[in-house]
């Protein structure tokens, strides 16, 4: 690279779709690898960070990296068909090219949590960012205490990562509680029926020496926080990731700020104490 070559912060890297998983009728996961072999080998990120994914001709969209940093050589994203970009992405096939910029943002401070019990609470499409941390912890299993996962969706078909849920359910070192909203169950559903905060309260994970990570619809997060407080969790023990609309991912475009906080640069990961100090602009 010569000196006058521009460093273009908006220029994505090319990635190839290596594998596709249909999670639900409108949610897909892509396993992505960088075309550039140096990047492929050297790509490093931390659980909780996000990226901007391009479907060329349609634009860029922001999601977390859904795989664990312990898995090398590839990364994954999970998205729901919603707008122009995600619909364009969903139309792609194995072997197609996408763009990726990242990793951006802060991360879950896993290194500070050695020896802690981990409680993961997710709703619907909120599981992907949490899943990155779950696998990160499972791949470093000996560093953590008890692992509890409470996951719910509107209906059985809306549950993402079904194979992994089955795997976690079988593991002796993981407590998995699955739930669907009332009316969302099928005749053969063996999990719970109820809303995530209620199911969490019934599960009642111990607050002592624990860290809770939650992600889901804003209304769910609100009630989960209240439930966790009731179970004895202090706000400093509860983490979430705030995903706002972003266009640049690098603190320029002016979209993601909550009051004076730029989610893309200072977030997206915050503990509940920090969230409660923010402006009411969610």
């Amino acid at each position: 690279m010569t000196d006058n070559k521009m460093n273009n912060i908006y220029l994505p890297q090319l990635v190839t779709i290596e594998d596709i998983y249909d999670e639900t009728p409108d949610v897909r996961s892509y396993r992505l690898v960088f075309k550039d072999s140096t990047l492929r080998e050297g790509f490093d990120f931390k659980a909780g960070q996000f990226g901007l994914y391009s479907a060329f001709g349609l634009g860029e969209s922001t999601f977390c990296i859904a795989s664990s940093p312990t898995r090398k050589g590839y990364f994954q994203c999970t998205f729901r068909r919603a707008g122009r970009v995600t619909n364009g992405m969903a139309d792609l096939s194995i072997g197609d090219t996408m763009g990726f910029r990242g990793p951006y943002g802060n991360w879950f401070p896993l290194d500070q949590w050695k020896g802690k019990n981990m409680v993961f609470i997710a709703g619907g499409i909120g599981l992907p960012p949490v899943r990155s941390v779950i696998w990160n912890c499972l791949d470093r299993r000996e560093e953590f205490g008890r692992i509890t996962i409470v996951y719910g969706a509107r209906t059985v078909s809306d549950l993402v990562y079904k194979e992994e849920l089955a795997h976690w359910g079988k593991r002796a070192d993981v407590t998995l509680v699955q739930a669907v909203d009332p009316g969302g169950q099928t005749p053969d559903w063996t999990g719970k029926v109820g809303f995530v905060p209620t199911v969490l309260e019934q599960t009642a994970p111990a607050a002592e020496n624990s860290i809770a990570i939650t992600c889901g619809p804003p209304i769910m997060i609100k009630f989960v926080l209240a439930t966790l407080n009731k179970l004895g969790f202090r706000d400093e023990q509860v983490y979430t990731t705030l995903e706002n609309k972003m266009k640049c991912g690098v603190g320029k475009c002016g979209r993601c700020n909550v009051g004076d906080v730029y989610i893309c640069k200072e977030g997206p990961v915050y503990n509940a104490a920090e969230v409660k100090k923010m402006y009411n602009d969610f």
Binding site: Y10, S54, F56, G57, L58, G59, E60, K247, C248, K252, C253, G254, R255
Partner: peptide, 15 residues
């Protein structure tokens, strides 16, 4: 504040 958009045809375009 700014937006990022893709424009063009199915074969080529610009961001």
């Amino acid at each position: 504040c700014f937006d990022m958009v893709d424009e063009g045809t199915a074969y080529e375009g610009e961001r």
